[in-house]
């Protein structure tokens, strides 16, 4: 424990749709215990869930961490997947690489990354082909 925040860590398993959302659920539960306003929890929930589902679909899983401070939450989603060749293109609303069988499940509408950016105050994505992708997000509480 560092002196000023809570550190939560979750292993997100690849291709396991049933488990997607469990990290989001636990983070939401923690924020509710902290008394964070519901409008902020909503932003965290959307960003976190989108990130989780991305790791399930594209990266064969990864690690999600949430560091909760008095005024903000910092979320890091790191995977060792195939990486994104053109990050700018991937950030375009509606653009998707999701395979047909995944789209048939209702995922892969191409809104994941754009929504994560939209609902967070700071959003940084780093990706290298063959190495993996790391998304860092910050949300400040109102």
């Amino acid at each position: 424990m560092n002196g000023d925040h809570i550190h939560l860590e979750f292993a997100v398993s690849g291709n396991n749709f049933a488990s997607a959302g469990s990290a989001s659920e636990e983070v939401k539960g923690t924020l509710k215990k902290l008394g964070i306003p519901s409008c902020d929890i909503r932003r965290v929930a959307i960003a976190m869930y989108e990130g989780e589902i991305n790791m399930v679909i594209h990266a064969g899983g990864g690690v999600a961490t949430a560091d909760i401070y008095l005024d903000r939450i910092e979320i890091v989603l790191a995977d060792k997947g195939k990486g994104i060749p053109d990050v700018e293109l991937a950030m375009t609303p509606g653009w998707s690489t999701a395979p047909e069988d995944i789209r048939a499940l209702g995922f892969g509408a191409g809104m994941g990354l754009p929504n994560m950016k939209k609902y967070t105050d700071e959003f940084v994505i780093e990706s290298e082909v063959g190495v993996g992708t790391t998304v860092r997000m910050k949300i400040f509480f109102s």
Binding site: M1, T30, K32, L34
Partner: peptide
Amino acid sequence: KDVFKLDDNRLAALSKLMEKEE
């Protein structure tokens, strides 16, 4: 209803949650 909040004061709630993690 706010039945899940650990403390009305956010700082106090945060320190309780940190203690809980330990």
